[in-house]
Design a protein around this nucleic acid. Sequence first.
DNA 1: GGTTGACCTTACCACCGCTGGAACCTTTAT
DNA 2: ATAAAGGTTCCAGCGGTGGTAAGGTCAACC
Lengths: 143, 143
Amino acid sequence: MNIGEAAQASGIPAKTIRYYEDTGLIPAADRSRSGYRVYDGRDVHTLRFIHRAREPGSSVQDIRKLLALWQDRTRASAEVKALALAHLSELDEKLAKLKAMRRTLAHLVAHCEGDHRPDCPILDDLAGEAAEPLQGNGGLRFN
Amino acid sequence: MNIGEAAQASGIPAKTIRYYEDTGLIPAADRSRSGYRVYDGRDVHTLRFIHRAREPGSSVQDIRKLLALWQDRTRASAEVKALALAHLSELDEKLAKLKAMRRTLAHLVAHCEGDHRPDCPILDDLAGEAAEPLQGNGGLRFN
DNA sequence: GGTTGACCTTACCACCGCTGGAACCTTTAT
DNA sequence: ATAAAGGTTCCAGCGGTGGTAAGGTCAACC
């Protein structure tokens, strides 16, 4: 299959696939006699792996590691597990932040009239509190 | 207060604050006689607003809009509410994806022996399933 | 066989949201 | 007076992606 089909099947744009190849994240694809990149099911599998692991906000470096481990079956599972656990805790952090944000936003939407008056309190409240407790700040507003 | 202090108080690096000023996200700060940027409580307030709204993966364009609305009290709250709602649904999407990822990873970690054997199934499983149902894929593994 | 149109190739340049560095100036502490 | 800590500007780069250009290749149709 050509790159377009592989892109469709994996969810990664053709451009990005070439980029991944350039930067060594994936090995160079085989070429047809005419120079077209040729992919098979295994390649798509790998691309999907990447696509899956690449949720927005995560570094490609992590995926590179994950991928390397995945492809090197001689490694001890302990290493893999440790990596996965690290990834997991990062994920949890991100989740917590997003949840806090979501909660605040939902709360504020609920308190916004949504009419023509200019005094919707949403953004004032949104501005008032910080997500991370780096500095102690006054009254936390989201329950 | 100088930029460093404002950075500390807002959680945004000084460098990034300058960048925000350059790109017009925030207005140019007042300057001291010697050219230092000077910030007050209100500025920090704004910066915290930005820091708070800027969770990883969200476009700065959204924040620009939010900020513009926040600072223009003459707008109808309906507009603000609509924007907040849109932001909320985006957030929910992101949350769902992260949760799915988290669930899968947790499941796999639980099934990994974590010893010296090279057959930890984590990554194979991780590679096996796609997050988005773009193409029908075989047996979905995460419950 | 010839032509069309979709797809592929490389190569470059630009963007976004930062981040780091260089070179220099100002404030503060000793 | 001097050193350190902070500020200033500007320039360059990153990852990841989109756009463009100039061209080669493939399948289908007349």
